[in-house]
Simulated scan of single mutants.
Amino acid sequence: MDSFDYDIIIVGSGLYGAVTAYRARQKGLKCLVLERRDDIGGNVRDKMIDGINVHLYGAHIFHTDNEHVWSFVQHFSDFNNYIHTVLAHIDGRYYHMPVNLMTFHEIFGAKRPHDISDIITAERRNEFYSCPKNLEQKAVSLIGRTVYELLVKGYTEKQWGCAATELPAEIIERLPVRTTFDSRYFSDRFQGIPVNGYHAMIRRMLDGVEFITGVDFCKERYYWLGRARRIIYTGMIDELMDYCFGSLDYRGLEFRTERVEVSDYQGMAVINETSSVVPYTRTIEHKHFNLMQERLPYTIITREYPSVWHPGCDAYYPVNNLRNNRLYAKYRDAASCIFPNIIFGGRLGEYRYYDMDDVILAALSLEL
């Protein structure tokens, strides 16, 4: 009979890995978590810098309509009642996002909900595609050329690193337009940010679970495969398979964080930059996530610069077009034969975009 040191080894200490580790411990399973970075938390990790809690890998606002998920996370942290709002900045002017009646007022002078449908109808008379062939054609057909050019085109092309006419239409299912002055970015019933931060929340999930940081699983895969009955893998499947079929496409991000010697830099947590001539996509001012933040004479901001991804870099967004989805399926089929005891999970492991609540729900649904 095979003898293993662990029932489960979990590769990655983000939300999927941490929730799975907590559940494994609750079931009495012996579990080990391996993390490539120097600390736990994956991309939701945050850190106190000069008295301000900084989201190290982009803004993370927890939001969900799922009562089960909301109840689950309450076990590990109290949440503040931060409600996320965003402005888009272009050419010296600001517009409310997501697109709502205020946005249409700022652009067109709209005053009533029915004005929106009249404006979009007029825009569609000038340009409409019944069978859009790319993202630009689909977006223009949904919201009109004017709004698209101001608020969508530049941001999207920076985010994905190519012209919107080169992106498949299926990347966007819809572009929601609110006919009210509701400027909340998310409409979910439950929203907020952990009072003591995501890092502290992950640590509570991993309470009593053995974990090791600074471990590159892929470089030592066969050693770790021999130490557990099952592996939960939340990394990139193509890296695990040594890119034998070629690499999947991802988008990278560069985060440039700085301390600014003013008490308030931009008046809110997130402002998107939708101009194509501004190289970064958004500016985050972290103190605005904490509603009780002590008024300090300085602040900390982070600008996000989308980047071309190369093997060896951190991957942030899967590029879910037809070519990549087919390649991922090919990798999954091959991996199931070569590594039958590996379960793939999370945004990278499943090669799909997940919100945080979706990640947690997936981890809670995993059979252990």
Score class of each variant (00 low, 15 high):
178 R>S: 14
359 V>Q: 01
144 G>V: 10
88 A>S: 15
97 M>S: 05
343 I>F: 14
128 F>S: 02
176 P>D: 15
13 S>R: 03
63 H>Y: 05
212 I>W: 08
129 Y>I: 06
88 A>Y: 04
367 E>D: 14
91 D>P: 02
208 G>M: 08
252 G>T: 03
304 E>I: 07
356 M>S: 06
122 A>K: 10
106 E>W: 05
359 V>Y: 00
180 T>N: 06
60 H>L: 10
180 T>W: 07
32 L>Q: 03
263 S>A: 12
138 K>S: 13
261 E>D: 15
225 L>S: 01
203 R>K: 14
171 I>G: 02
150 L>S: 01
9 I>F: 04
276 S>R: 13
22 Y>N: 15
159 Q>H: 12
351 Y>M: 09
294 E>W: 04
159 Q>S: 10
117 S>H: 10
128 F>Q: 02
67 E>L: 08
41 G>N: 03
357 D>A: 09
55 H>E: 07
132 P>W: 08
199 H>M: 04
339 F>E: 05
39 D>M: 10
342 I>Q: 04
216 D>A: 13
310 H>K: 15
361 L>C: 05
97 M>G: 01
223 Y>L: 11
338 I>P: 04
71 S>N: 15
65 D>M: 05
190 F>E: 01
51 G>W: 09
60 H>W: 08
31 C>N: 00
210 E>W: 01
337 C>V: 13
335 A>C: 12
41 G>T: 02
174 R>E: 12
116 I>R: 04
323 R>L: 11
26 Q>E: 15
105 H>R: 14
248 L>W: 00
22 Y>H: 14
56 L>C: 09
44 V>D: 01
273 E>R: 13
17 G>Y: 02
4 F>I: 00
185 Y>F: 15
81 N>C: 05
355 D>V: 04
225 L>W: 08
27 K>A: 14
29 L>Y: 13
53 N>M: 12
205 M>K: 02
289 F>S: 00
352 R>S: 08
82 Y>T: 05
248 L>T: 00
343 I>S: 12
115 D>R: 08
126 N>W: 11
207 D>K: 15
271 I>A: 01
137 Q>S: 09
271 I>E: 09
2 D>M: 07
185 Y>M: 05
23 R>G: 02
277 V>H: 14
240 L>F: 13
238 D>G: 06
80 N>H: 10
298 Y>C: 02
138 K>G: 05
149 E>R: 14
140 V>S: 01
156 T>F: 07
196 N>Y: 10
56 L>F: 02
284 I>Y: 01
13 S>H: 05
44 V>K: 01
106 E>F: 03
319 V>M: 15
237 I>F: 07
349 G>F: 07
